[in-house]
Simulated scan of single mutants.
Amino acid sequence: MIAVIDYGMGNLRSVQKAFQRVGCQAEIVRDPAAVAAARAVVLPGVGAFRDAMANLQSAGMVEAIHRVVAAGRPFLGICLGLQLLFESSEEFGHHRGLGIFPGTVKRFPEGELKVPHMGWNQVSVTNASPLMEGIPDRSAFYFVHSYYVEPADPRLVIASADYGLTFAAVVGRQNVYGIQFHPEKSSTLGLRILENFGKTVRA
C-alpha cells in the first residue's frame, strides 16, 4: 500500500486517483503510525512551505517520514512535497525543512516572466532513473509554483526545466524522489511516472 500523507496541504484525492488509474493501491492517511508502516509514502502539497512544515510537525509526521526514508522504502514528494525534502526555504523568511536532501528553496526572480510559473513546460532528463523510464527527453509536464529547489549536490538532479533559469524538475537519491511538476495533472506521461514509482514499490 502507498500511503498518501494528509497534512492539510494537498490535492490528495487527485493523487490517490492517479495512482489507482495505474493499478497502484493508494490510501490517504492521517496517522503517523500508518505512514511509518507503509510500504511506500507520497508527500504531495500545495501552499506555503512554512505552514506545511508546521502542519507536519503538529501531526507527528516528521519522525514517521524520516523512519520511512531510513528504512529504504520508496518515498515521493510532489510539488511542495519536493521542496519540503530539502534543508530550508526562503519563502516568507528562513524556514527549516525535512533535511533529507542538502539544498534550499528559492523564489523565481522578478522580471519579464510571470510568477508563479504555471502551465506546461518541457523537462530535460539529465540522469538515468527508474522514475523516468519510458519518458522521452523534452517531454512536457504541468507546473504550478513560485519557488524552486537549488540542490547543494548537483548529482541529485534527475531532470531539469527552464523558466528564466534552469531549475531541478525531478530529483532523487536511492529510495527518495521528488517532482516539482504535478504528474497527476500531466496526462499520460505523468501517469507513467507514477506507474514507475509503483514499480519501485513492488520491486
Rank of each mutant, 00 (worst) to 15 (best):
D6T: 06
G8N: 07
N11D: 02
L12P: 05
S14D: 01
S14G: 09
Q16S: 10
Q20L: 12
R21H: 08
V22E: 04
Q25N: 11
Q25R: 14
I28K: 10
D31S: 14
A33T: 06
V35W: 07
A37P: 03
A38V: 03
A38D: 04
A40M: 08
V41A: 10
P44Q: 05
P44Y: 02
G47M: 05
G47P: 06
R50T: 03
D51G: 09
A54H: 09
A54C: 08
N55P: 03
Q57M: 05
A64N: 08
H66C: 03
V68T: 00
V69C: 11
A70P: 04
A71R: 07
A71W: 01
A71Y: 01
G77H: 06
I78A: 11
C79T: 01
C79K: 03
L80R: 02
F86C: 04
F86V: 01
S88Y: 01
S88I: 01
E91K: 12
G93K: 04
H94S: 14
H95C: 11
G97W: 00
L98M: 10
L98I: 02
T104W: 02
K106F: 05
P109R: 13
E112I: 12
E112Y: 09
K114F: 01
V115S: 12
V115F: 13
W120H: 10
N121C: 13
T126D: 06
A128R: 15
E133D: 14
G134E: 00
G134L: 11
G134M: 08
I135Y: 11
A140M: 13
Y142W: 05
E150Y: 09
P151S: 14
D153W: 11
R155L: 13
V157N: 13
I158F: 12
G164Q: 09
L165A: 14
T166F: 09
T166Y: 08
F167M: 08
A168M: 13
A169H: 13
R173F: 03
N175P: 10
Y177R: 09
H182T: 01
S186T: 04
S186Q: 07
L191N: 09
N196F: 06
K199F: 01
V201E: 06
